[in-house]
């Protein structure tokens, strides 16, 4: 009897991958909205393409995606809208691409945020993961480029990573379409609530700061009881983030607690549109 290569299972129609239907650019009603975040040049567009069946131009240079690209897929009978965000190293400073990414994760309230990370440069990539986990707890880490990591003699223990981050971590090699079924399964579990994320939030050491933060967090929590990320909002306010101050003044932040992501994506409210056009680069 021949032994089966696990990779062969991924292309077998009996596999649950068969539950994936790539919907391309199709519009219409969606059950869930999924955001795709990550550092520049970690293969977000490649993951985007293998989930949606679109051929968004990919290239081996950072900053390839300057506009938000959207696509769709259906998995296990549920329809998902997928939004490819510009690659950013952090969500703290104020360049346009970071603002687009952050505003979408915060105000667009995606049902799942997939953070694509480069397995060969894990430490730097985790900075962004931790920042995303501050804003939203419904996240999946896509540990991409594991083939490249292997080539460089790097092995990542995804179970340890999963324990430390509190969200699903799925190893993939998107260029070779490896790990995509497992990624879909994780996205579905987080979206439907079958998997409840318990993300780690990074500790602040100084006692004075900690006291200020908890005081502020309590205030925010009181004003917006159903806000999923009061500590993050508190941190931003304490740093004097004008965009968040503005969102509190205009009531935009308050609206977040009343409107679902789906309604938002339908009205287009709260997501800062740069341009929906797909920047096709010849």
């Amino acid at each position: 009897m021949t032994t089966l290569n696990p990779q062969q299972c991924e292309v077998c129609p009996v596999n649950k991958d068969a539950k994936l239907i790539r919907l391309g650019l199709e519009a219409g009603k969606f059950e869930f909205v999924v955001a795709l975040a990550g550092n520049p040049n970690v293969g977000k567009s490649t993951v985007f393409n293998s989930l949606t069946g679109l051929r968004q131009h990919t290239g081996n240079w950072p900053g390839k995606t300057v506009v938000r690209a959207e696509g769709a897929f259906s998995f296990d009978g549920k329809r998902y809208k997928l939004v490819d965000l510009p690659g950013t190293y952090s969500l703290l400073s104020t360049s346009t691409d970071e603002e687009v990414a952050r505003d979408f994760i915060l105000f667009g309230q995606p049902d799942v945020t997939v953070v694509v990370v480069d397995a060969t440069r894990l430490e730097r990539n985790l900075n962004l993961v931790l920042q995303v986990l501050e804003i939203t707890e419904k996240a999946v880490v896509c540990l991409n480029l594991i083939d490249e990591a292997k080539r460089h003699g790097i092995v990542v223990d995804e179970r340890a990573l999963m324990r430390d981050l509190g969200v699903p971590v799925i190893p993939t090699a998107a260029r070779a379409d490896q790990g995509i079924p497992a990624l879909l399964q994780a996205i579905a579990e987080v979206a439907t609530g079958a998997f409840v994320c318990k993300p780690k939030r990074f500790p602040i050491e100084s006692g004075v700061l900690r006291k200020a933060i908890s005081k502020m967090t309590a205030k925010v929590q009181l004003a917006f009881p159903s806000l999923p990320n009061p500590r993050w909002v508190a941190l931003r306010l304490l740093e004097g983030d004008q965009r968040i101050v503005e969102a509190i003044k205009t009531g935009e932040l308050g609206d977040l607690t009343r409107q679902t992501a789906l309604e938002k994506s339908l009205t287009g409210k709260g997501t800062k549109e740069m341009n929906d056009e797909h920047a096709h680069a010849f």
Binding site: E123, I154, V155, A160
Partner: peptide, 9 residues
């Protein structure tokens, strides 16, 4: 976290 998860051959 990275230090705990990354194993260099």
């Amino acid at each position: 976290i990275a230090g705990r998860a990354v194993i260099l051959k």
